[in-house]
Simulated assay, not measured.
Amino acid sequence: MLDRDQLETFATVVEQQSFDRAASVLSITRGAVSQRIKALEESLSTVLVKRERPVAATHAGEVLLRHVKALRILEGSALQELAPTAKPHAPVSLAIAVNADSLATWFPEVLKELLMGQLVALEVITDDQDHTSALLARGDVIGCISTSAKPADGFLAECLGAMEYR
């Protein structure tokens, strides 16, 4: 079983792109951050981060980062279901990638439905539809609008239709 503190430390290092900034965010020493990352890498027998500036995830690290983000989403969802009115919880943080044309036309209705029904902190990343699947594969987003019919590992691809340009 993976250690949750190590996983969160790893994700924070990648998100902050720095061991020092991760230490500051987590309110622990840089040495503690380094030890957690090293222990996690040893337990998985693989290198998870490229120790350069800025720090970046390796391919194995990208796989693990998707796992950590999925854990965060599941935990937030469970907390909302267990005590939806007893005490407010932080919104579930999600990031999705959408092309500009979709964002300018039909996608705002989808966003409205999502945001009205859930306690979600949504980050919408705008990128070309030919490049959004790379963001998904890296673990930067949990969903995307893409021209690729082939899903990223661990994801499904569903045809949404076609847009006619005038």
Rank of each mutant, 00 (worst) to 15 (best):
N99P: 14
A95N: 08
D101Y: 15
N99H: 15
P91S: 02
P84M: 00
E81H: 13
P88F: 11
T85G: 11
E75K: 07
A86G: 13
A86M: 12
S77V: 04
A95L: 12
K87F: 11
L94T: 09
E81F: 13
E81L: 13
E81G: 07
T105V: 01
H89L: 06
H89C: 02
A104K: 10
A100W: 13
A86V: 11
T85Q: 13
A95F: 11
S93M: 14
A97L: 06
N99S: 15
A83N: 09
L74C: 06
W106E: 01
L94Y: 10
A78G: 05
V98P: 13
A83Y: 08
K87T: 07
E75M: 04
N99K: 10
W106K: 05
W106L: 08
V92R: 02
A95W: 13
S93N: 14
W106I: 05
H89A: 03
N99L: 14
A90W: 03
N99Y: 13
A100N: 13
V98L: 08
A78K: 03
Q80S: 05
I96Y: 03
L94H: 11
L74Y: 07
A95G: 06
V92A: 02
A100V: 14
W106H: 06
K87H: 11
P91W: 01
V98F: 06
E75F: 01
F107V: 02
A95V: 07
P91Y: 02
A100S: 15
Q80C: 02
A104L: 13
L82A: 10
S93L: 14
L82N: 12
L79D: 02
A78S: 08
P91R: 01
A86R: 15
A90L: 12
S77G: 07
L94F: 08
I96R: 00
S93H: 14
L79C: 00
L94D: 08
S102D: 08
A83D: 04
A97G: 11
P88M: 12
N99Q: 14
P84K: 00
S77R: 07
A90R: 05
P88W: 10
P88C: 11
A86D: 12
L79I: 00
N99I: 14
A78C: 05
A104F: 08
A97H: 05
T85P: 04
S77Q: 07
D101H: 15
L74E: 13
A86I: 09
L79P: 00
S93Y: 10
P91H: 00
K87M: 12
H89E: 07
A104W: 07
A104T: 11
L74W: 06
L94C: 10
P91C: 03
V98Q: 09
A86L: 14
A78R: 05
L79Y: 00
A100L: 14
P88T: 12
A100T: 14
N99E: 15
F107G: 00
P84L: 01
S93A: 15
S93D: 11
E81N: 12
A90V: 08
A104C: 12
P88K: 15
E81D: 12
S77I: 02
T105S: 05
Q80L: 03
A78W: 01
F107H: 00
W106V: 04
E75Y: 02
